[in-house]
Design a protein around this nucleic acid. Structure first.
Lengths: 216, 216
DNA sequence: TTGTAAATGTGAGGAGTGCTCATATTTTAT
DNA sequence: ATAAAATATGAGCACTCCTCACATTTACAA
């Protein structure tokens, strides 16, 4: 019943984009409600056409309340983007975790991008969010950071199963592979199903040549 | 002195995005002036922050006049994008034109992406334009079409120098290679110079493995 | 229960955008 | 010179994101 708000400075920053850290249960629910309304609206019309007034109306709150939680429209998009990114990262990390040989890495990579593709197909909002990110300078940095983080995940695994290869080449290649992987996902979901599948296959085919014994 | 406007229907559609095909010399100059003002403003602040009122002011014309030539703000961006795309395509076509062997293809590909990278570095507006394109659904199709066109250019050459490989695999791979090439250029110019160079190198290294004799 | 201070909710309206349209001006053709 | 067509103009419309002064609710001690 009585839920203390985490009061002072230095408390847990749960969602850094928020204007006011929602301390009470009701507030947290309200934030979740806002976000799911935003998702629905983005699904319908795209994040650009989504109006703050619509979000407020659908969530059953006033504009003022909406802005109490999110400092601006971009913050909603950013929060959503961070969640999707976190989901992707978990997906990648869990796939690479158990890899111990080069063959297993190839296997994991292949499986990863299949499930990654399914994720993108299942969440059409992801693509829209990404488009919105590209248009915003701040959000683009977030995207880049994400690619770097994913690149690290791959680089660690790669270096582990193939210790001979010079580390800098691995780092650069891993970053590029993960970044271009996302780019591939985006084109793949933007064309029709069979072609999308072929594109993903072509990408996997291309990258899998990198994970071979003779390090050039 | 007297310059006839190409009058009737069915005349040459020079720039399809324009509201009114500029027929007189003065009009055409005015369109060019508008575009170069837009470029300068985009360089300064980005296409999103560019205001139509600023474009008009810098070009020394009224808002109304501006809208007589361009139906909306996106049309300016689109026109610019089409020009940059055309420039890229020419660059690609001329590089592939004289290729007759697989080794030459590798050579041409390598050279292409070096000059391509220089082009991107020299024209910071290109990257901004591209970001704006990603945000707009209509403009995204243009981008996709561009990748397809460039993919065809590569596929033709590739099939020519390596007739054995199944055509569908070549088509898919060529499209992906050119598309991801653009993606690579964009990250490369968005990081600092040395890392950008390494990224381009990593991409070339990765792709050049595709252009080898043993077609898998 | 009641009082008080903090937290939260509200929506009219400010500031600024893209774009229109009735009107004025310039060019072209006769 | 004159009519008609093309072009130029900018006040203002419709619409956006977002603020802020104020109302309401909650938390908790007296």
């Amino acid at each position: 019943m009585i839920e203390e708000q985490t009061p002072a400075a230095g408390s847990i920053e749960e969602e850094p984009g928020l204007r006011r850290t929602p301390s009470q249960k009701r507030s947290r629910e309200r934030v979740e409600n806002i976000l799911s309304c935003a998702i629905r609206l983005i699904e319908e019309k795209g994040s650009d056409a989504m109006r703050m007034s619509e979000v407020a109306a659908m969530a059953g709150i006033s504009i003022g309340s909406l802005y109490q939680y999110f400092p601006d429209k971009a913050a909603i998009v950013r929060t959503l983007a961070e969640r999707y990114n976190a989901a992707s990262r978990d997906c990648i990390a869990s796939e690479f975790a158990k890899v111990t040989t080069l063959a297993e890495l190839r296997c994991a990579f292949s499986a990863l991008f299949d499930t990654y593709y399914d994720m993108f197909l299942a969440e059409p909002v992801m693509r829209d969010i990404w488009s919105a990110m590209q248009a915003d300078k701040t959000l683009r940095k977030l995207e880049l950071a994400e690619s770097r983080a994913n690149g690290c995940l791959l680089a660690e695994t790669w270096a582990r199963v193939q210790p001979g290869t010079p580390r800098e080449r691995i780092d650069d290649a891993a970053f590029l592979i993960m970044h271009l992987g996302e780019c591939t996902m985006r084109v793949a979901v933007s064309v029709d199903r069979p072609e999308g599948g072929r594109i993903v296959a072509a990408y996997k085919h291309m990258i899998l040549r990198e994970f071979v014994a003779d390090a050039t």
